[in-house]
């Protein structure tokens, strides 16, 4: 029974999250307050949105580590477009353009991977570096401090007292589920990742599928930027630094294989939940000042533990 549960990554992770929540809320009941759960969900929203894209990239047998710098460029260009002291574009135009830039960068990654045959880790590593430099150049040493109210609403507004970012996340999740289960594209992505040769022989266009997953990730990164950056009043040049590692960690902890073909949305969701709650948990445990310096090590051990437990179980299954 237990091995059955643990065999399915999502269930194992879910139980682990439950255990962690129980322990923390036993020590500090404030952890379970509605406000805190809502805050955690809002924090997790952008990571969750991007992870939906990166998961499909991994399933297709590629990887995307450029999303952090993409967010930087997107935030900077969005800020400049809407800022009252810069371009002053109407908010809906700026939103549309931001989404287009996101798709554009994703397509650029995808073209190089699919049609020029450059390994995705290299393309996206190059983009990670180059786009960070580009962000600095776009910002030119000044931050954007005057986002208009319409844009701030994307990050701080609520509909039926649920934050907009959560509605967006729900929408993206629904679309991803639909994409995976109800459209031929979903099946093709999995087929491409698990056996590219066979997929090719079966007449699938591997190239267009790869192009699609990168463009999709670019679009989702733009969506995540739009709903998360306006939570803050200042757009700085460091937005998104390190997001790529967090997203890849979430996706991988959620059981997605870096060899392609394997990955479930439920697993990824649990991965995102675990990774975003760890640091909150550490604060709620009130471990004292010395423990602050150990928090990165504790987070690392959590990741290591999740990965090793999974491998141990799957090795024993055989």
């Amino acid at each position: 029974m237990i091995t059955y549960l643990l065999r399915h990554r999502a269930i194992g992770l879910f139980l682990f999250i439950g255990l962690l929540t129980t322990v923390v809320s036993w020590i500090n009941p404030a952890f379970l307050s509605a406000q805190n759960l809502r805050d955690i969900a809002v924090q997790a929203a952008p990571i969750c949105i991007i992870s939906c894209g990166v998961m499909l990239v991994l399933v297709a047998g590629e990887i995307d580590i450029s999303v952090g710098s993409m967010m930087g460029v997107l935030a900077a260009s969005m800020g400049i477009m809407v800022s009252a002291s810069r371009a002053q574009l109407p908010p809906h135009v700026a939103i549309a353009l931001t989404l287009l830039i996101g798709i554009g960068m994703g397509l650029f990654n995808g073209l190089l991977v699919a049609y020029a045959g450059v390994p995705s880790i290299i393309v996206t590593l190059g983009m990670l570096t180059a786009l960070r430099g580009l962000t600095e150049i776009i910002m030119n040493g000044a931050w954007i401090t005057d986002l208009p109210e319409e844009i701030r609403f994307l990050g701080t507004g609520t509909i039926l007292s649920v934050p907009l970012s959560l509605w967006t996340t729900a929408g993206v999740l629904a679309m991803t589920i639909w994409l995976i289960h109800r459209t031929p594209i979903g099946r093709r992505i999995y087929a491409t990742g698990s056996n590219p040769q066979a997929a090719q022989l079966a007449g699938l266009s591997i190239k267009s599928i790869k192009l699609f997953v990168f463009a999709w990730t670019g679009l989702l990164t733009a969506v995540a930027t739009l709903v998360s950056v306006p939570q803050l009043s200042v757009v700085d040049s460091g937005i998104g630094v390190g997001t790529e590692l967090l997203v890849v960690t979430c996706v991988v902890v959620g059981g997605t294989s870096v060899n392609g073909g394997v990955g479930t949305l439920s697993g990824v969701l649990c991965g995102v939940a675990l990774m975003t709650m760890i640091s909150t948990v550490l604060i709620f445990l009130k471990l004292g000042e010395h423990a602050t310096y150990w928090s990165r090590a504790i987070q690392g051990l959590f990741i290591l533990g999740a990965i090793l437990a999974d491998h141990w179980i799957s090795n024993h299954k055989k």
Partner: peptide, 9 residues
């Protein structure tokens, strides 16, 4: 950063 990223690709 830009030069190195492009150089790589």
């Amino acid at each position: 950063l830009i030069v190195l990223g492009l150089l790589l690709i």
